[in-house]
Design a protein around this nucleic acid. Structure first.
Lengths: 332, 332
DNA sequence: CTGAAAGCGCTTACAG
DNA sequence: CTGAAAGCGCTTACAG
């Protein structure tokens, strides 16, 4: 180990006190130009950098945000993690990432461990059960922000898209295309995204004088979406359009329709998804999909999180508008 | 904020000293059963958990590993991040994630910030320039482990696949299929993965009495891979087989060949990639690809990292063997 | 503007 | 096995 350089070493070399060193590294602290310059020179020479842990112990602020994610394989959350990290970094915060197992069985332990690290706030993305974890954090006074999930419970801060509007857009699109036998492949019902997307979709169908013709659940899993597709399209009166609650499932649904069931998309079936992940635009798929404003959601999340960490009573942002990326999978 | 519960609060309630509380939370410390039980009961009642920051300050160990990644959109690294996080969590470590921008321009700053957080080690994945960062860390005595990258410089610890062997496998496969006009679409030459894959591929061709017919660079970017494909296959004497240095590019190459150039895969051109990402197996692609043993690499990385953190002189592991997942894109 | 002193919450020799 | 004391590296009122 290289000998750890402390503020005292710098102070001695610069001929000032430890307080002065600390001030020289604190933006806006009252320190004369000369002192600051001497400190900076000495610090440079010794390779000194303040120990963030020691600072955190004093200030009670770690400038670390705990980010809990469960799925990194659905093509949606990797981009989210990247953008959240970058955005927090730009604000002088850093991200401690915790993987929750898919069944959320270890969520309590994860929550405790994050608290142990004195994170300033917790951002939960792609996590199913959040009641326990949020209660724990509230007791400790650590703000919790849900990303892409609402929680009915009072007092939860959530950043979401207008998922209902997304469902409604797809319904209107299907209706305008003249499709009549409409199917829906759902995500996990424990997720507000699933419930909102379906509610909006069904409402949109009703507005167009239509109703749901078939429904199955793919639980946000490609393999289960495949099974749901086989079952839904193996029946006599199969749908001529299907809305799938996420692209991760919708891509599997397209593959199943085309390669297993020999159906033409969109000739036999129009397919629409949700998230507009990069692959949706690839030539092999050209999947019509509801696009979330991820950049906007990330910006809202960072602003909301930092406000809460700093004790400002920033209100939860409005749901972000979504748009429909119309592609060949519905229009031919 | 909920009042912070400290070890002193617990000590008072349990009628013991702070030392006893500390020992009750330190596995293997000498403390009587009775005392430990009293402490545990009091801690439970107060909701006490030790402050990891304070402990780190004393012990000089944060049990935090800094993970630097640049690309989270190539379908390969998200799985890596997930597996690394899980594996470190299982060993009682946690992962502070830092996004390096693609051009690595902010790598120095990222390195400094990680040091500020007193990470116990640094794992660098998908990072191009690593010389500065590794030197900085060596000065501080923080171990640096490269994931999926070698560095020629002495003393670097790297965990890699046998990339040369991967290239060789593809060459032998193409030769066995009777392909003669062989193309290669390269990644960034600054990456050892690129250089090793190409070297192995060329060596394998030579062993089969073949040589490279065409070469272009896609720089590990799908869009540049598309351009390279258009150029390589727009010429008269186009290849009848092409090896692409990563699946992220290979999938784009397949799309370009089929949908832009109207070529049949593998009828006109056999295509092989590297990484065997999940999409490679999807019905729309069925891409032959070199599979890396990611689980093995992760295990090596965690073992190596922890050994170094604990001061044990674990040697760098051998390159992990790779296998070829043969699919329709080469065999029809 | 500057320094001495106290203290953040914990662990660890040191005695007993 | 147990407790009192020192100290990890820093910041922050408090005087000056």
């Amino acid at each position: 180990m290289g000998e750890r350089v402390t503020s005292l070493d710098v102070a001695r070399l610069a001929g000032v006190s430890r307080s002065a060193v600390s001030r020289a590294f604190t933006p806006g602290a009252s320190v004369s130009k000369g002192t600051a310059a001497k400190v900076r020179a000495a610090a440079e020479q010794l390779g000194y950098r303040p120990n963030v842990l020691a600072r955190s112990l004093l200030t009670g602020r770690s400038r670390v945000i705990g980010l809990v994610v469960a799925y990194l394989d659905g093509h949606f959350y990797p981009g989210v993690v990247e953008k959240l990290s970058n955005a927090f970094q730009a604000e002088g915060y850093h991200v401690l990432i915790f993987m929750a197992s898919r069944d959320a069985g270890n969520l309590d332990q994860v929550a405790r461990e994050m608290m142990d690290y004195q994170v300033d706030a917790l951002v939960l993305a792609s996590v199913e059960m959040t009641s326990d974890i949020t209660r724990q954090c509230r007791d400790t006074g650590v703000p919790v922000i849900l990303f892409n999930r609402r929680q009915e419970q009072a007092g939860e801060l959530a950043v979401v898209s207008d998922n209902q509007q997304g469902g409604r857009l797809v319904a209107a699109h299907f209706a305008a295309l003249g499709r009549r036998r409409i199917g829906y492949i759902a995500g996990l019902d424990s997720a507000s995204t699933q419930r909102d997307r379906e509610a909006g979709f069904v409402a949109g169908l009703e507005e167009a004088g239509l109703r749901l013709h078939a429904r199955a659940s793919g639980a946000f899993r490609p393999d289960q979406a495949r099974d749901a597709t086989v079952e839904m399209f193996g029946r006599a009166d199969r749908p001529d359009a299907v809305f799938v609650a996420s692209d991760a499932m919708a891509l599997a649904v397209m593959d199943t329709l085309r390669f297993e069931l020999g159906l033409n998309v969109p000739g036999d079936v129009a397919v629409a998804g949700f998230d507009d992940v990069p692959i949706a635009g690839w030539p092999s798929y050209r999947l019509t999909s509801v696009r979330q404003d991820v950049d906007g959601m990330v910006a809202d999340t960072v602003r909301l999180t930092i406000a809460r960490v700093e004790g400002r009573p920033e209100p939860a942002p409005l749901p972000r508008p979504v748009t429909l990326s119309v592609r060949v999978s519905t229009t031919g």
